Amino acid sequence: MSADEQLVKAAIKGDDTAFLKLIQTYKIDLYKTALSFLKNEDEALEAIQEVTYRAYKSMSSVRDIAYFKTWLIRIMINYCNDQVKKNKRVILGDDAFIHQGKTESHTGMELKDAMLDLDERSREVLTLKYFNDMKIKDIAHTMKCPEGTVKTWLNKALKALRNKLEDKGGDLHV
């Protein structure tokens, strides 16, 4: 059993110090996720606070300690999706989108606009894969669907994103 898994077990049993260590371990992943969905750093930091609270309150609902990070990221995604629906806005923090070793260079604004035009599931799968570096297997677990489905969604999301960038006159470097 890994050190993180031991911390998760302790946190489930009510060890606040273990819970705080886990949040500290995953705060960068939570921040990247929040920033990819929300408009700015302040909102991303607020999201981390809210998700920390929600995770603390529902710690007993963790079913598989090996997937604690996935569970935590899922809480963040749900929170961010709710915020996006409220605010009707999304942002990406990177200026380049990397896919299978190929770099497609676009300005941050082009990516933001293109991501805004995508459906919620496409934004979610792209965020998990490219901003959280999650494996297909972990994305499938997070989204509660087969790996093949995630691959299909990812393919469609990338194709849609490319099409939107081309429609906006983006300069594709594939």
Score class of each variant (00 low, 15 high):
140 A>N: 14
77 I>W: 00
152 T>S: 13
128 L>E: 13
148 G>N: 13
126 L>P: 07
112 K>V: 12
46 E>K: 11
35 L>Y: 12
60 S>G: 05
26 Y>C: 07
148 G>K: 13
92 L>F: 10
174 V>S: 12
79 Y>E: 06
66 A>Q: 12
66 A>F: 10
3 A>P: 04
59 M>S: 03
78 N>S: 14
14 G>Q: 10
123 R>D: 08
13 K>Y: 09
119 D>L: 07
105 S>K: 13
171 D>C: 01
123 R>V: 12
47 A>M: 08
65 I>Y: 07
21 K>R: 14
121 R>P: 00
96 A>C: 04
2 S>P: 14
84 V>L: 05
57 K>Q: 13
72 L>D: 09
136 I>T: 15
86 K>E: 12
59 M>L: 15
101 G>N: 08
135 K>V: 08
121 R>N: 03
130 Y>G: 05
27 K>T: 07
62 V>W: 12
40 N>L: 02
174 V>K: 14
31 Y>I: 05
7 L>E: 09
56 Y>K: 13
61 S>W: 02
148 G>T: 10
163 N>M: 14
52 T>H: 07
79 Y>Q: 04
165 L>V: 10
156 K>Q: 14
5 E>C: 05
90 V>P: 00
60 S>Q: 12
112 K>T: 14
116 L>Y: 11
127 T>G: 07
107 T>C: 09
67 Y>C: 13
73 I>T: 09
153 W>S: 14
61 S>A: 03
66 A>M: 06
37 F>S: 11
49 Q>E: 10
50 E>R: 01
39 K>E: 01
18 A>V: 00
71 W>V: 02
100 Q>P: 00
170 G>K: 02
41 E>W: 01
173 H>C: 03
95 D>A: 03
100 Q>T: 06
50 E>T: 04
80 C>W: 02
134 M>Y: 10
169 G>K: 05
43 E>R: 13
62 V>A: 05
58 S>P: 00
38 L>H: 02
158 L>C: 11
109 M>F: 02
55 A>M: 11
45 L>E: 15
138 D>G: 07
17 T>P: 00
58 S>L: 03
171 D>Q: 03
2 S>A: 09
53 Y>C: 05
72 L>N: 08
24 Q>D: 15
133 D>H: 14
151 K>T: 13
40 N>W: 01
95 D>P: 00
27 K>G: 00
55 A>R: 08
51 V>Q: 02
53 Y>H: 09
136 I>N: 13
48 I>K: 09
14 G>F: 08
166 E>R: 13
52 T>M: 06
32 K>M: 10
118 L>N: 09
171 D>E: 04
75 I>G: 00
92 L>D: 01
162 R>G: 07
80 C>L: 03
33 T>D: 06
97 F>A: 01
66 A>R: 15
75 I>L: 05
107 T>K: 07
58 S>W: 01
118 L>I: 12
127 T>D: 01
134 M>C: 09
161 L>F: 07
6 Q>F: 03
10 A>V: 01
163 N>Q: 15
156 K>A: 10
